[in-house]
C-alpha cells in the first residue's frame, strides 16, 4: 500500500514535469488556431516557419553565433587551460575564481555588465556584441572541460617526446593534443549548446533588428500563445536534446574507459544553464 502511494506520488510529480513539454509538442501539430480545441494533425505551422522571414533570420543568427562563438571559445579556452595548467599558487586561484564569475553570476548581471562595456567602448550593440558576449560566457566551460584532461595527462610523455628530438610544437601536436581531444570536443559541443540556448545575455547585448531564436520566442510569447512558436520550440527542444545526449554519451563513455567517476566532466554536462543562472558549477578544477 505504501509502495503504491509512493509510486503514485512519483508519477504525479513526473507528470507535472513533462505535461507542459508534451502539450507544447502536441500543439505544434494542432490544425486549429484556438488552443483549447484539437483540430486534427497538421504540419502547417512548420511550413509557416519556412516562410517567416523574422524567424528564419533569427535562426540564421542563432546558428552563426553558436558556430562562431563555440569555435573561438574553444581555441581561446583550450589555450587558456594549457597555460593555466602550469600556474600555481594564489595567481592560479585568483584566475580560476574570476573564470567562475560568468558561471556563477546571474545571467542578467552578466548581460547588463557586458552591455555597459560595449556602450563604454562604443561598439554599437548588434550582431558583433552578441557574438563577443557568447564567446565570453562560453570560454569558462571550455576551460573547465579541458583542465581535468590535462590533469590526467602524464607530463613525462611530453618530455620524452622532446628528448627523442621532437620540436615543442610537434610534441604538442602528437602527444598532448590527442590526449586532451575528448575534453576539447566536449567543451566545443557544450559551448555550442549553451550558445543556442541562451536568452538573457543575448537579450541585453543585442541591438535593434538583430535577434536570435530565444529573443524572437520571448517577444512573441509576450503577446500570447502562437502555434508557430510551438513549432519553433519543438525544433529547438529536439536540437538541444540531441546535442546534449551526444555530449553526455561522450562523457559517460569516457568515464567507463577511465573506470572511475570523472567528477569534473560530469559536473559540466549536468550543469545546464537555467532560469538565468549558471552558478551550479563550483569548487572544481581548483
Amino acid at each position: 500500500m505504501v509502495k503504491f502511494l509512493k509510486r503514485c506520488y512519483a508519477a504525479v510529480v513526473y507528470a507535472f514535469l513533462y505535461a507542459p513539454i508534451l502539450i507544447l509538442v502536441l500543439y505544434s501539430f494542432n490544425d486549429s488556431k484556438s488552443r483549447g480545441a484539437w483540430g486534427g494533425f497538421t504540419l502547417r505551422w512548420y511550413n509557416e516557419l519556412l516562410h517567416n522571414r523574422e524567424i528564419l533570420s533569427s535562426l540564421y543568427n542563432t546558428i552563426l553565433i553558436a558556430v562562431l562563438s563555440a569555435a573561438v571559445a574553444t581555441v581561446i579556452g583550450t589555450a587558456a587551460a594549457i597555460g593555466l595548467h602550469g600556474w600555481r599558487g594564489y595567481k592560479r586561484t585568483i584566475i580560476m575564481n574570476i573564470t567562475y564569475i560568468p558561471v556563477l553570476n546571474p545571467d542578467i548581471v552578466t548581460g547588463v555588465s557586458l552591455m555597459l562595456l560595449f556602450v563604454f567602448i562604443r561598439i554599437p550593440l548588434g550582431f558583433m556584441t552578441m557574438l563577443l558576449a557568447h564567446i565570453t560566457f562560453n570560454i569558462p566551460y571550455v576551460i573547465l572541460s579541458v583542465l581535468p584532461k590535462l590533469k590526467q595527462l602524464d607530463s613525462y610523455l611530453y618530455e620524452a617526446a622532446l628528448d627523442l628530438g621532437a620540436t615543442p610544437w610537434y610534441a604538442f601536436k602528437k602527444v598532448i593534443l590527442p590526449e586532451i581531444m575528448p575534453g576539447i570536443i566536449t567543451g566545443l559541443l557544450l559551448a555550442f549548446t549553451l550558445s543556442i540556448d541562451d536568452f538573457v545575455i543575448s537579450f541585453f547585448t543585442t541591438g535593434p533588428g538583430v535577434t536570435n531564436l530565444s529573443i524572437t520566442v520571448f517577444s512573441r510569447a509576450r503577446k500570447g500563445v502562437n502555434p508557430t512558436i510551438n513549432a519553433v520550440s519543438t525544433l529547438m527542444f529536439l536540437a538541444v536534446l540531441v546535442l546534449l545526449v551526444i555530449v553526455n554519451m561522450r562523457v559517460s563513455k569516457e568515464n567507463q574507459r577511465r573506470g572511475k567517476r570523472n567528477h569534473e566532466q560530469k559536473t559540466i554536462v549536468r550543469n545546464r544553464r537555467f532560469g538565468g543562472t549558471r552558478r551550479h558549477l563550483h569548487n572544481h578544477a581548483r
Binding site: P20, I21, I229, F274
Partner: peptide, 16 residues
C-alpha cells in the same frame, strides 16, 4: 527537462 530552454518551459505553461 532542465536541458530544455527555460524560456520554452515557461512558455509551455501559457498554453495550459
Amino acid at each position: 527537462p532542465m536541458w530544455m530552454n527555460f524560456l520554452l518551459r515557461t512558455y509551455a505553461w501559457l498554453t495550459i
